[in-house]
Write a protein that binds this DNA or RNA. Structure first.
Lengths: 140, 140
DNA sequence: TGTTAATGATTAACTAAGTTAAGTATTATT
DNA sequence: AATAATACTTAACTTAGTTAATCATTAACA
């Protein structure tokens, strides 16, 4: 293993541990990080189907289905059957869901926001384009 | 949310999903990604205690304890009581553990290696120093 | 020096969140 | 019209965390 790679390994494992810890941390007023991430995605992405979420988060539709069940019960999202294809139920955030994402108290939950706080504009742009390349490379 | 941040959010959520998917994927010959990460860390870091691993991976000692139990049963690591402090049991990889990490088939399991494969030297160095800043920022 | 407090590791009971497989409703194919 | 495919759901199971309690050992100190 080359020296450059060794240095990357060291910092990256720390970073990776942080991301995973964040997901495992959960439970902010009964809302786990997993719930939060789903609501946030629906909020930013707009109306989303079960299928779309399963592709985005790379988990089974069964997993999404159960999480959505919770989000519906908690009144964070609402579900509507699509008229053009009645197999599809699309999700939108409720007012309560919007408040969860916008609420400054929850701001800290978001890894993205933490990174944005730490890096300046140029650094953020550099990191974005590097990760873009990595993500593209991973999917090919 | 500024445009720079929005772009970062989009690519970062993809990246984050990949990392989590990798950890959830598991089961390469009965060895999950969690097991693999532990063995890899012990291999690269040298003799490590339960406590050290729990700090590194940001999980409870109880969680480490159970994972280590598996690694011992699978003969991937071995445990020795420290003479200077007999509360501590340090871990080292066995020959089989070393083979697991070195084996080219397992190479793909490692997120670090995938990133190293995708980026060239300069890009890797740039990403390393950006993540270094992020990691430091997160811990302060 | 002997008691008390702290530390490292382990176990038990529990929880969160994934998985696969099977089932239902709807749509597409031929 | 029958068959195949798709979107979603549910059930049974697994993995890997958590906290709380316990044991052995070491550190602190009256």
């Amino acid at each position: 293993m080359k020296n450059t790679e060794k240095e990357f390994y060291d910092v990256f494992t720390d970073f990776q541990c942080f991301i995973i810890a964040q997901v495992n941390s959960g439970d902010f007023n009964g809302v786990t990080a997993t719930h939060y991430n789903l609501v946030e995605f629906i909020y930013r992405n707009g109306a989303s189907s079960n299928k779309q979420l399963s592709l985005k988060f790379q988990v089974s539709q069964a997993a999404i289905s159960r999480q959505v069940k919770f989000l519906l019960a908690a009144n964070l999202v609402m579900q509507t059957q699509l008229k053009q294809d009645r197999r599809v139920f699309y999700l939108e955030v409720t007012e309560k869901g919007r408040q969860l994402i916008d609420g400054s108290e929850n701001f800290r939950m978001n890894t993205t926001n933490q990174v944005c706080r730490i890096l300046d504009k140029e650094e953020l742009e550099a990191l974005t384009s590097l990760l873009q390349k990595v993500v593209q490379g991973l999917h090919s």
